[in-house]
Design a protein around this nucleic acid. Structure first.
Lengths: 111, 111
DNA sequence: GGTCTTTTTGCATAATTAGCCAAACGCGTT
DNA sequence: AACGCGTTTGGCTAATTATGCAAAAAGACC
């Protein structure tokens, strides 16, 4: 099998990025980074309609970022690859730096 | 100044992720990871309409991922924070592993 | 089979985004 | 000031995505 062309790889790459580019999905990923969770636990923690949580989990599942396993009538989700959380942590650090820099500049402008 | 609530941080975080969640922007970021580039160079390398490249650069600029500086009539762009490329590299590795795993499973199914 | 619990899905609506062409803008040159 | 080059933006269309409610599925238990 030959490798896909670079543009195709970029498309798949973007698909992966798109999956983590949502506030709710980010919250879900951080919840899962502490360990496996049932859908109901996530729903409770985020205080969102069941269907909303389920859809977002479906997006993450479709891209292979998380995996699920039935446990009786519940479904438990867990991270499939921890590097995804590492990646969004990196971006979060970038963002945190920016927020902090902005706070500093506001403060100095007030003095 | 007090920190924004977590949901607000997640929203900003997602904004950052959204900015990198596009095949063209990923290609641009990789081009810039080698060093600063003029818009015309990027346009040429990616073989896209000028306006398309410009819009994507505007998205990256708006989120602070890249910065620009005029050089005569040209505009040169460069990465503002190298960690963004590190982050997408991590995701690219995850994707590459998945592509490879799929290739292996196809191959073994053919045997 | 009927019922309760947990999760997913159908459907309709609202909002966001990409894309291109053509017009405008900014800057250097004559 | 007129022209040319490089870049951005206005305006429109097409496509994608999120959302919530209500209905359906899947499993456990009687």
């Amino acid at each position: 099998m030959q490798l896909p062309p670079r543009s195709e790889l970029n498309r798949m790459h973007a698909e992966l990025c798109t999956a983590v580019a949502d506030p709710i999905r980010i919250a879900i990923l951080y919840a899962l980074s502490d360990g496996p969770r049932y859908v109901s636990e996530i729903r409770e923690q985020l205080d969102l309609p069941q269907s909303t949580v389920s859809r977002h989990l479906a997006v993450l599942r479709a891209t292979g970022i998380v995996a699920d396993e039935r446990q009786g009538r519940k479904v438990r989700y867990h991270l499939a690859d921890h590097r995804v959380v590492e990646a969004i942590d990196l971006l979060r650090a970038v963002m945190a730096d920016r927020v902090q820099a902005r706070a500093r500049s506001i403060k100095s402008a007030q003095e």
